[in-house]
Simulated assay, not measured.
Amino acid sequence: MNIDTRLATFDDIPLLQQLIGNSVRGLSTAYNTPGQIESAIKYIFGIDTQLIIDGTYYVALVDGAIAGCGGWSKRNTLYGGDQHKEVEDSLLDPAKDAARIRAFFVHPDWARRGVGRHIMQVCEKAAKNAGFNKFQLGATLPGVPLYEAMGYQAVQKIDEPLPDGEVLPLVKMSKTL
Rank of each mutant, 00 (worst) to 15 (best):
D63V: 04
I20A: 14
G71R: 14
S23W: 01
L92I: 02
K128I: 08
R102L: 04
T56Q: 07
V171R: 06
I44S: 00
G71M: 07
D48F: 03
A130D: 11
G143T: 11
A8Q: 12
D48P: 02
N129E: 14
I52Q: 10
L19P: 12
Y152W: 03
A127Y: 02
L162T: 03
G151P: 14
K74H: 12
A40R: 02
L177N: 04
Y43G: 00
F45D: 06
Q83I: 01
L92Y: 04
L92D: 01
R112F: 06
E148I: 07
L137H: 02
M173S: 07
I13L: 09
N133A: 02
T140H: 04
M150V: 05
D164P: 04
L61C: 11
R112Q: 09
E38P: 11
L137F: 10
A65N: 11
W110Q: 06
K85D: 08
T29Q: 15
C69K: 00
G70M: 11
L19Y: 08
G71H: 09
G80A: 15
T29W: 06
L137Q: 01
Y43R: 02
S174H: 12
M1W: 03
W110M: 10
Y31S: 10
R6H: 06
T49R: 13
T77A: 05
G46P: 09
H107V: 11
K96M: 00
Q17G: 08
Y43F: 15
Q156K: 15
R6D: 05
D109F: 09
Q36P: 11
L27A: 00
I47R: 12
S90L: 04
G138T: 10
V59A: 05
H107Y: 13
G80E: 12
L27K: 00
